[in-house]
Design a protein around this nucleic acid. Sequence first.
RNA 1: GGUCCCGUAGCUCAGUUGGAUAGAGCACCGGAUUCCUAAUCCGGGGGUCGCAGGUUCGAAUCCUGCCGGGAUCACCA
Length: 581
Amino acid sequence: MTGMNLFHHVRQKVEAALRTLQQEGLLPADAPLDRITVEPPRDPAHGDVTTNAAMVLARAAGMKPRDLAGKLAALLRAEPDFKEVEIAGPGFINMRLSDAFWPQLLDAVLAEGEAYGRSDIGRSEKVNVEYVSANPTGPLHVGHTRGAVFGDALANLLEETGHDVTREYYINDAGAQVDVLARSVFLRYREALGEDIGEIPAGLYPGDYLKPVGAALAEKYGRSLLEKPEEEWLPLVRDFAVERMMALIREDLAALGIEHEVFFSERTLHESGLIDETIRELEKRGLVYVGRLPPPKGKPPEDWEDREQLLFRSSDFGDDIDRPLKKSDGSYTYFAADVAYIRNKLERGFTQLVYVLGADHGGYVKRLEAVNKALSGGSARLIARLCQLVKLYRGGEPVKMSKRAGDFVTLRQVVDEVGPDVVRFMMLTRRNDAPLDFDFEKVTEQSRDNPVFYVQYAHARICSVLRNASEELGAEAQGDVDFSLLSDEAERQLIRRIGEYPRMLEQAARAHEPHRVAFYLQDLAAEFHALWNKGKEKPELRFIMPENPLLSRTRLAFLRAIRYCLANGLRILGVRPVEKM
RNA sequence: GGUCCCGUAGCUCAGUUGGAUAGAGCACCGGAUUCCUAAUCCGGGGGUCGCAGGUUCGAAUCCUGCCGGGAUCACCA
């Protein structure tokens, strides 16, 4: 028992009926049941739940869909959970649940509370979600925000649906750019010791955020580094600087409520010999060779040199061309480290490797998939999700960002201005592969246009009613409830929506699409606001009615069920529900 | 030129992994407040789902080819 999911419940009834048909010989024993869907119909007038079972299985049964539907419907009508079972269209079976079913659903929601929606469909699968993984050369900028929020919400979503999730950050601390970082910091170190360093030379990081790093270095080493040659000071300064940058990045992430469990250093892959080991293994399997790559098609680059290099046969596994493992200076490429990294992840037992990347890394996905295929042999899935750009606006005007290095909007500036909850929710109001506009003014507006506000307001309104209840009802606030009293169409629609929550989470998790949670919450909030206003025209629909304590208590319990859906959904997005506005 | 993503109402976007008559918000027009938060709600018009084929009981969804927009394209990360 993993919690109340009415569509699972109905599916079991449908499958039981199908087994009966199998026993009667009307349906082959090996009929494919996995293609059957049990879902809410698009049009509520068609009932509460619909299944395509008869259409999917008609061929196997050698019957017309509507005839098979007739057999199935006859069996389902015997179930007390259903009030009506009808055949419609080409062979849909539409079911309306009995009046007695809905109170049971609400009881279950209240009993499960904060756990409502949780499931074990992930079967404790070990999932590695790698996200952010920004270079440790400076603070996170706004471009990192979307991937950070998306990855974190996805990790929460997978956890909620029964996966064993590890949140991971890959530190690119082995390449040339961390050497550039070291030289940039060394300049700030000299500056801290009183030297006039003038303009920061092109090719180095000019940002002021390196000043305190240089100062800290001066405090730690005094003038001692000045006399050493670069070969000696560079590793020291580099390690020091990377550590400080990662501390900075962790602070930025913490401001957004993000905390990775594992920070994995690229350098350890080189130093531990893991890359050597991985390449030897590939060599044994004949997947590595020395050869030449064809020059890029279209216009060939000016500095293209045709040369022999060590290549991985990624084209055997779906990639367009084979990929180089070593650079011209003999050191390993970034790709070689990633091969070893994937091997490491597989050795740690992950069977699902999720990569949250910026859209500019789209060209990298095929080779990652190829590596995973080669190393796991298909026992693990690699899932890449690309996040499109976020465009910043302020009152409809684009926020200008000069291309001059160092002049960019940081993640921290955005979070500090509008708050982490707004940032997180807004980043999930579009599909990850669609571009997103973020307007500093609109996202803090208190209006229907602003989805964050709209959902939060629904939650706050519910809290407000619950606060007023004890005052208005007094001792009558406590006592039994009778959910069968909730008979208005607006109320019933909300109950159905509550019932969809676990299914929505499952679908979102399977598709790796946390934005679906955000859209669900907007729908739920809209239906709640509608009911609220209905109580203005029809006083008998108000939540608190002192002259009718039983109905009042029932509606308050109903509101708590709605609140659980709102709060649980927001929690997955990493947004704190507010109780007052 | 290759690869990947996108194309749905005037605008911004959903569309339950192939289902029934394609939905919401904004904008436009008209309404609702003695009363639990009007920071909200109700009603109205608005469509060649980029185009053309194919797959089948059934396509916005899957396949192929075009058109248009974006990203990317040896050794950097």
